[in-house]
């Protein structure tokens, strides 16, 4: 198969970027999108030209590192990570636009590589359980009903890729934050800090410059782990409950 790629090229964070055109042919239809980029890079290198920088690691959809926006859709046309997107899903001869995940909160490091540490700073505000050292309670003493466990697991499946942010017209990180809050606020050991957790994470989320949610729902349409919009409803509920209290926020408690 052959393609024309328009790839975002940016030398460093503070420099301007632009789209660069490349023609690539002889691509195996079963090659993944990243394998196609590898092939392109190999040919560029052989010609002594500048190669395209992009993030990747596990190549199997679990590490959350690959972060390409393909033809305007984060990760690509199917609801899977870029590394699991195959060239057979594109039309032969198509022109494909390749960009990094776009968000004001994800500065571009180089070409298609972005800095997603804003998501970490949200988690740092309280996306965890505060424990003391010492013997831990027997998990079987606090049984978790299967329905709850399923919900928690669905939320905990988040791989932190940031596609939700890249798909949101408002640049919001609600699906990510909602997943964290849903995960911890439903567990028995997450109950003591339930109210302040939602509040702290939302404060941090806003402070990082993410936008607000107006319920477009694009985030859930691109999430490769299929995290449901319900986590946003949960976050809204938990925030409302937490907003009434004047507790210390979790982040200041060690």
């Amino acid at each position: 198969m052959r393609f024309t790629l328009e790839v975002w090229t940016q030398a460093s964070r503070d420099e301007e970027g632009h789209f660069e055109r490349y023609d690539v042919d002889g691509i195996d239809p079963d090659a993944s999108f990243l394998e196609m980029l590898d092939e392109l890079n190999a040919r560029l290198a052989a010609e002594g030209k500048r190669t395209i920088a992009f993030d990747s690691d596990c190549r199997e959809g679990i590490c959350g590192m690959c972060s390409l926006t393909i033809d305007g859709q984060p990760h690509g046309p199917n609801q899977v990570t870029t590394c699991q997107t195959f060239m057979r899903d594109f039309e032969d001869g198509a022109t494909i636009r390749v960009e990094p995940f776009r968000s004001g909160a994800f500065p571009v490091v180089r070409d298609l590589v972005t800095d997603r540490s804003a998501l970490d700073r949200i988690v740092q505000a309280g996306g965890y359980v505060t424990t003391k050292t010492g013997p831990k309670p027997d998990p079987n003493a606090a049984p978790v009903p299967p329905a709850v466990q399923q919900k928690v697991m669905d939320a905990a499946a988040c791989i932190g890729c940031g596609a939700c942010v890249a798909a949101c017209p408002n640049g919001a990180a609600m699906l990510f934050t909602g997943a964290k809050v849903t995960h911890f606020n439903l567990l028995p050991q997450g109950q003591p800090e339930r109210a302040s957790r939602a509040r702290s994470l939302v404060l941090a989320m806003d402070a990082e410059g993410f936008g607000g949610c107006t319920n477009y729902g694009e985030c859930a349409r691109v999430c490769p782990q299929e995290i449901p919009l319900d986590v946003i409803g949960m976050l809204n509920r938990e925030y409302r409950r937490g907003a009434r209290r004047e507790d210390d926020t979790v982040g200041t408690r060690t």
Binding site: Y128, P137, P139, N140, V144, P146, L187
Partner: peptide, 22 residues
């Protein structure tokens, strides 16, 4: 065993059976 209990406590969502037990 102590390590797995520790993990469960800090939020690892280990699978539970129909009765809600690990």
């Amino acid at each position: 065993p102590a390590e797995v209990l520790h993990l469960e406590h800090i939020g690892v969502t280990f699978h539970r059976d129909e009765t809600g037990r690990l």
